[in-house]
Amino acid sequence: DDAQGRAAAGAVVKGGYKAVAILHDNSSYAKGLAEETRAVLKKDGVKVVFYDALTPGERDYTAILTKLKAAGPDLVFFTGYYPETGMLLRQKKEMGWAVPMMGGDAANHQDLVKIAGNEAAEGYFFISPPLPQDMDTAEARSFLEAFKAKYSTVPVSVWAVLAGDAFKVIEAALAAGNDKPESMAAWLKNLKDMPGLSGSLGFDAKGDRVGEFYRTYTVNDKGVFVLQPK
Rank of each mutant, 00 (worst) to 15 (best):
V12C: 15
Y81N: 13
M135Q: 04
D136C: 11
D134R: 08
E84T: 01
A98H: 02
D134N: 12
A176V: 09
R6A: 11
D208W: 12
A70F: 02
Y124M: 04
L197C: 02
G45P: 11
D25L: 07
A120E: 04
G103I: 01
L162F: 07
Y51L: 06
Y151T: 15
A30V: 07
A138L: 15
K18N: 08
G96P: 09
A106Y: 03
M95G: 13
K230S: 05
V76F: 12
G223K: 00
V224H: 05
E212C: 00
F213R: 00
E36W: 04
Q133N: 11
A107H: 10
Y151Q: 07
G57Q: 04
W187S: 08
A149L: 13
D1I: 12
F50S: 13
V158D: 10
L88M: 09
A53N: 08
I64K: 10
D221C: 07
V161L: 09
M194P: 03
L174N: 07
Y124T: 02
D179R: 05
W187P: 05
D179H: 11
T37R: 13
A9V: 01
Q110I: 10
P195F: 04
Q110H: 10
G96Y: 05
T37E: 09
P181H: 14
G223S: 01
F125W: 04
Q4P: 08
G223I: 00
E139G: 07
P229D: 12
A176H: 06
E36P: 15
Y214R: 05
V20I: 03
V226H: 05
T153G: 08
F203S: 03
G80Y: 09
S198N: 11
L75P: 03
L188V: 06
R6G: 15
V158M: 14
G164W: 05
G104V: 01
S183L: 14
V156L: 15
V161Y: 13
A186W: 15
Y217C: 11
K189I: 02
L68F: 12
V161R: 06
Q228D: 07
A63N: 12
K67H: 13
I170Y: 04
E122M: 06
A53E: 13
S142K: 15
M102V: 08
